[in-house]
Design a protein around this nucleic acid. Structure first.
Length: 362
DNA sequence: CACGCGTGGTC
DNA sequence: TGACCAAGCGT
């Protein structure tokens, strides 16, 4: 069935105006006080929407406040060093968000005179601004009636309208965008879009939704049939693969520790870490030889500390923490350097390697 | 379309 | 405790 046809089918006998009124009224009364809701500044809205991607509100709040203190304006962020931006993002995850945001902000400063574009075609070109973020910024900062379909919206609408399509599929997200286009309030698109998300966060939750408190209960097809817990339908993702490593803690005579910068693309791009060798490719016996080849330093393994387990969204690192002593050679590596423990604090480290900090003798 | 891309909370 | 998640995007 074509989407348009499916949209008509779903929307049949659904009172859109009643839905809009109840949703918007509820949002105006019940919305949480959040730092990015102080005003409609497009820059603040933008930063908040990027931080909120796949990330909880409670986690974002302190990062948002710190980020806006360090980079209060588009211009301030455009002029900052990338490493400084990554440091402000440290611990928040999905670090390409930070680098894309800064790239896009620089583009806005250079190409749009520092004004976040209000046209869908223009804002959509910016790095890191996808269909959801486009709709969120345009509706919240510029009051434009554009859909902003995220996981909350799909869950809420799949229940209210009884949609059984798999929300893990891109085609289903498009279906919801078309549904929202029919549903969205042109009087207050900001409260409408935010209301759907707020409802998903506070009432229409993934587990044990509070249907008795829901302003849309009378119109909810899933509640009517008692199947709210069965929706949305979402195909499961496969589990993470394990990757074993040896993490090396190496200090020179001055007590400085060896760290290196990760490549500028891929996992944890441009962040810093302790040298890490892939076990399996290399075993414990040949580790010093491998290390000499890679870094130009002759080392001797000393003490084996604990194994750090770190779970990513798609893989699991199991890092055996080992201290080593330098017995010769000279550091010869593009992206590695010795730093004092004080200096180390200025470098953005992924949480996986922050877990190794405590094994350094200070 | 499917996958790579982080982290911390929850049950 | 492992699985599942929480305001997605780029490729």
């Amino acid at each position: 069935m074509k989407n348009l046809e499916r949209v008509q089918q779903i929307m049949q006998n659904f009172d859109r105006e009643l839905f809009r009124q109840n949703l918007i009224q509820w949002f105006r009364n019940e919305q949480r006080v959040l730092p990015w809701r102080e005003n409609q500044d497009p820059y603040r809205v933008w930063v908040s929407e990027i931080m909120l991607q796949q990330t909880r509100v409670d986690t974002v709040i302190p990062y948002f406040n710190n980020f806006l203190t360090k980079f209060p304006t588009l211009e301030a962020l455009a002029e900052a060093d990338e490493q400084e931006v990554l440091k402000a993002w440290e611990g928040l995850g999905y670090y390409s968000r930070a680098r894309n945001l800064q790239n896009a902000v620089r583009e806005v400063v250079e190409e749009y005179q520092g004004v976040v574009p209000s046209e869908p075609e223009e804002i959509a070109k910016l790095k890191g601004v996808g269909p959801y973020t486009k709709g969120a910024i345009l509706s919240i900062a510029y009051d434009k009636p554009i859909p902003a379909v995220d996981g909350n919206v799909m869950r809420v609408l799949s229940r209210i309208l009884h949609v059984e399509e798999d929300i893990a599929k891109a085609s289903t997200k498009k279906l919801f965008e078309e549904l929202i286009t029919e549903l969205i309030s042109h009087e207050d698109p900001s409260s409408f879009n935010q209301g759907l998300m707020e409802l998903g966060a506070l009432v229409c939750t993934p587990k044990s939704p509070s249907c008795l408190l829901c302003p849309i209960q009378e119109q909810c097809r899933a509640f009517e049939q008692g199947i709210e817990e069965e929706l949305p339908v979402k195909s499961s993702k496969k589990k993470q693969k394990k990757a074993p490593y040896m993490l090396l803690l190496i200090q020179n005579e001055q007590g400085e520790v060896l760290i290196e910068q990760r490549p500028s693309s891929g996992l944890l791009a441009s962040l810093w870490q302790y040298p890490m060798l892939p076990l399996g490719d290399v075993d414990r016996e040949s580790a010093p030889h491998w290390f000499y080849g890679e870094y130009g330093l002759k080392i001797e393994l000393k003490e084996t500390k604990q194994t750090i387990k770190h779970v990513f969204s798609h893989l699991i690192w199991e890092m055996e923490v080992v201290t080593a002593e330098i017995i010769g050679g000279e550091l010869d590596h593009e992206r590695a350097r010795f730093v004092t423990l004080d200096e180390r604090n200025d470098y953005p480290f992924p949480v996986s390697h922050q877990k190794a900090h405590k094994y350094i003798n200070s």
